[in-house]
Computed example of a mutant assay.
Amino acid sequence: MKRCDVYYGDAHAIKDVSIDLLDRTVTAFIGPSGCGKSTFLRCLNRMNDTIDICRVTGDLKLDGEDIYDPAVDPVQLRARVGMVFQKPNPFPKSIYDNVAYGPRIHGLAKDKAELDAIVEGSLKKAAIWGEVKDRLDQPGTGLSGGQQQRLCIARAIATSPEVLLMDEPCSALDPIATAQVEDLIHELRENYAVVIVTHSMQQAARVSQKTAFFHLGIMPEYDDTDKIFSNPSDKRTQDYITGRFG
């Protein structure tokens, strides 16, 4: 993942950000509101393509392939780079169909038995199988907020992505549901590169191994999480984590 710039019309929203995201590692993006964390996250699976005035330049690669190459299909890219949003957003479909949606459109299952196995496996990895296995035909929207978010995580991993992006996945959840999702992030790291945008520095410290600090569209610092929180090398990072601004 090399140099990246993002423009909204004439506004230069992300300036020369360069980062290498590591496999089987949770990377946290922290920084004050409006500093570019979510904008940069959305570059990684081309969600910014959906915004007419947004323009992304630079060199963003997944497994050595430029994800902005015209030959790259954004739909296929999003199967490899899954995303979980701030507010749980299950489709108005059954729990089963929420998880089966991606594998169906990408043709990942030969038959019903294979699709059943993908759905069960994804719900198990998202730590929600035990709660929903007897009501897979019921609407996903009928679950609690924390269950809905874990269902959305199951939906995101059902296409066997390499990277999982999470944009403040706990901000709409209560403390118990937040703890469940944080535990789940620890487990997901065994199989995926996980990138999480969070407003909570405590959460970043709990779940991540690497942390990138964003400020006014630039990334002053990117390092091991322990170092960022104990001995940051940039004064802006120091001022942010000690509460001098936020």
Rank of each mutant, 00 (worst) to 15 (best):
H106I: 11
L143F: 05
R135I: 06
L41A: 11
K133P: 06
I105Y: 04
V26S: 01
K210Y: 06
Q203G: 07
L62K: 11
A127R: 15
V163W: 01
S208Y: 03
Q180M: 13
G130V: 00
I19V: 15
C43K: 05
L188K: 02
L165H: 00
N89M: 00
G107H: 00
H215N: 14
K15F: 08
W129M: 01
A79V: 00
A205T: 00
G140D: 08
T237Y: 08
S160T: 14
Q147C: 09
D59K: 12
V181Q: 01
A204I: 05
H199N: 05
P90V: 06
P232D: 10
G142R: 12
Y240V: 04
P92K: 08
E162I: 03
V81N: 06
C54G: 11
I105E: 10
V197L: 00
R78W: 01
T211L: 11
G121Q: 14
K110D: 15
P74H: 12
Y222D: 08
A109D: 10
Y8V: 05
Q238N: 13
D226N: 12
L62H: 07
G9F: 10
L77A: 12
P220K: 09
D16A: 14
A172P: 09
P74R: 01
I14T: 09
H106Q: 01
L22F: 12
T141V: 12
R104P: 07
H106M: 06
N231A: 15
A205F: 10
I19Y: 12
I118D: 04
R206I: 13
I95T: 06
A177M: 08
P90I: 03
I218V: 15
W129A: 11
R80A: 00
F229Q: 08
V26D: 02
Y240R: 05
P232F: 14
L115C: 07
Q202M: 14
N191F: 04
V56Y: 10
G31F: 02
K133E: 09
D20Q: 13
A193M: 10
G121W: 09
Q180E: 15
D49A: 07
Q86R: 07
M201S: 04
D66G: 12
T27H: 13
S33K: 04
D97N: 15
N89P: 03
F85S: 01
L173T: 10
D224K: 15
R42Y: 15
D223A: 15
L62M: 13
C43A: 08
I241M: 07
E190G: 06
K61P: 02
V119W: 12
P161S: 05
A205D: 02
F214K: 00
P70C: 07
V195A: 08
E131I: 04
Y240N: 11
G243P: 01
D97G: 12
S38W: 03
I196Y: 03
H199T: 08
K2I: 08
I218F: 05
R244Q: 15
A212Q: 02
A172H: 07
D234K: 13
R155W: 04
A13I: 15
W129F: 04
G130L: 04
F40S: 08
P232V: 05
P103Y: 10
P74E: 06
E120V: 09
N89C: 11
L62D: 11
L44D: 03
A212H: 02
V81I: 01
P232C: 03
K133T: 06
G58C: 09
R55V: 14
S230C: 03
P88C: 01
H12F: 11
S18F: 04
P169K: 00
A117L: 13
Q180T: 09
D226F: 11
